[in-house]
Design a protein around this nucleic acid. Structure first.
Lengths: 136, 136
DNA sequence: CATACAATGATACATTGATACAATTTGAAA
DNA sequence: TTTCAAATTGTATCAATGTATCATTGTATG
């Protein structure tokens, strides 16, 4: 008995599979069949049901995760988030980059680091990241 | 009241849980909230508080143990170690600050800011702070 | 026909969870 | 005091889960 979701995919519709999965999950949350806290099937379980590669399911999950609708965690699984969380995420996006930078400097200062130390460490890190992205 | 540590984990940050635990302990040692000789909660206690698997806490402890920062002993528990020498303490401070910088960059990236934007914002802030301290 | 690009598949990997185990402490009985 | 079983604590191993990277396929587009 692996018929757990009852998802119906249309392989001929032209709409990408991962998008159909995203839409269907959205519909089920809106309709109340899926509720906050519910665990979704693992990417491999759902892929097995839908006769699809699990990467395709993973792609759908990732999109929903970035939208703040579900939470995917490596080694744990994926869960429906509270609607509040999505709103909270929206509010968090309103946090400016300046706020983040100030938090960083403030926390460093609290731990006893001088501004010069903090600046140097940050610049070192940035230079390292620039190199890594360029060498790929 | 099992709220003993007050650790705040972010399950959606993308930073692995065990790494968040490692970072937080490093910060508390650097900041002086944790001192040599202090006993950390058992892996199971802390796991209960943080709602994670105790293996995840054990992994964090093992990393800190291998770094010579804490001492974990089967059957006894885990304790904060005395820094071997000034160099070890310097290394801990450096790593702590580096973690802080990485968190900053990661969070900025998660909010959609490019590395260049993040760098510029930070440098602007630093320059402003330098001026302010000079004009006082 | 060739090329570019998006979608999907294959594979290796990192993180977390479940379970059994070993070392140490504790406490009661002898 | 000694002994020893039970509880407590960290360790080791493997399974389960999502992630990252690249290859393959199919489909527009020139």
């Amino acid at each position: 008995m692996s018929e757990r979701t009852g998802f119906q995919l249309d392989f001929r519709s032209g709409e990408p599979i991962y998008e159909q999965i995203v839409d269907e999950i959205r519909r089920r949350i809106t309709g109340g069949q899926l509720r906050p806290g519910d665990q979704l099937p693992t990417v491999r379980q759902m892929a097995l049901e839908l006769r699809v590669n699990f990467n395709t399911v993973a792609r759908a999950y990732r999109i929903l995760d970035e939208a703040g609708i579900i939470s995917t965690q490596q080694g744990r699984g994926t869960y429906i988030l509270e609607a509040d969380d999505a709103q909270a995420m929206q509010r968090l996006r309103a946090v400016t980059l300046e706020d983040l930078a100030e938090d960083f400097v403030r926390e460093a200062k609290r731990l006893g680091f001088s501004l010069a130390e903090t600046e140097q460490m940050f610049c070192n890190l940035v230079n390292r990241l620039k190199k890594d992205s360029g060498s790929s």
